[in-house]
Simulated scan of single mutants.
Amino acid sequence: MIRDPRSGCPIATTLDIVGDRWTLVVLRDLLVGKKRFSEFLASPEEIATNVLTDRLALLEEAGLVTKTPYQLRPKRYEFSLTKKGEALLPTLQAMCRWANRFIPGTWTPPESFMRRKVK
Rank of each mutant, 00 (worst) to 15 (best):
1 M>N: 13
1 M>S: 12
3 R>F: 11
3 R>N: 13
3 R>K: 13
3 R>E: 14
5 P>R: 06
6 R>I: 14
6 R>L: 13
7 S>I: 04
8 G>K: 13
10 P>H: 01
11 I>Q: 08
13 T>I: 09
13 T>D: 03
13 T>F: 01
15 L>P: 01
15 L>C: 06
16 D>G: 11
17 I>P: 06
19 G>T: 00
19 G>I: 00
20 D>W: 04
24 L>V: 10
24 L>R: 12
25 V>T: 13
26 V>C: 00
27 L>G: 01
29 D>W: 10
30 L>E: 03
32 V>T: 14
32 V>W: 03
36 R>E: 13
37 F>N: 00
37 F>G: 07
37 F>I: 03
38 S>W: 10
39 E>D: 02
39 E>R: 07
39 E>A: 04
41 L>G: 03
41 L>W: 06
41 L>D: 03
42 A>F: 06
43 S>N: 09
44 P>K: 10
46 E>T: 10
47 I>Q: 02
49 T>N: 12
49 T>F: 10
49 T>G: 11
50 N>S: 15
51 V>T: 15
52 L>Y: 00
52 L>R: 03
53 T>V: 09
56 L>A: 06
59 L>V: 01
60 E>P: 07
61 E>V: 04
63 G>P: 04
64 L>V: 07
64 L>C: 08
66 T>W: 05
67 K>R: 15
68 T>D: 11
69 P>M: 04
70 Y>W: 11
70 Y>D: 05
72 L>I: 09
75 K>E: 14
76 R>V: 02
77 Y>Q: 07
77 Y>I: 02
80 S>T: 14
81 L>S: 03
84 K>W: 04
84 K>F: 04
85 G>P: 01
85 G>A: 07
86 E>T: 08
86 E>H: 09
87 A>Q: 03
88 L>W: 09
88 L>F: 15
88 L>S: 01
88 L>I: 04
89 L>H: 01
89 L>R: 05
90 P>H: 02
92 L>H: 04
92 L>K: 00
92 L>M: 05
94 A>P: 03
95 M>R: 11
96 C>E: 12
97 R>E: 11
97 R>G: 06
97 R>N: 01
98 W>E: 08
100 N>V: 05
101 R>K: 14
102 F>P: 03
102 F>I: 01
102 F>T: 09
105 G>A: 05
107 W>Y: 10
108 T>Q: 14
108 T>F: 00
110 P>A: 14
110 P>W: 03
112 S>V: 06
114 M>L: 06
114 M>S: 02
115 R>A: 08
117 K>G: 01
117 K>F: 04
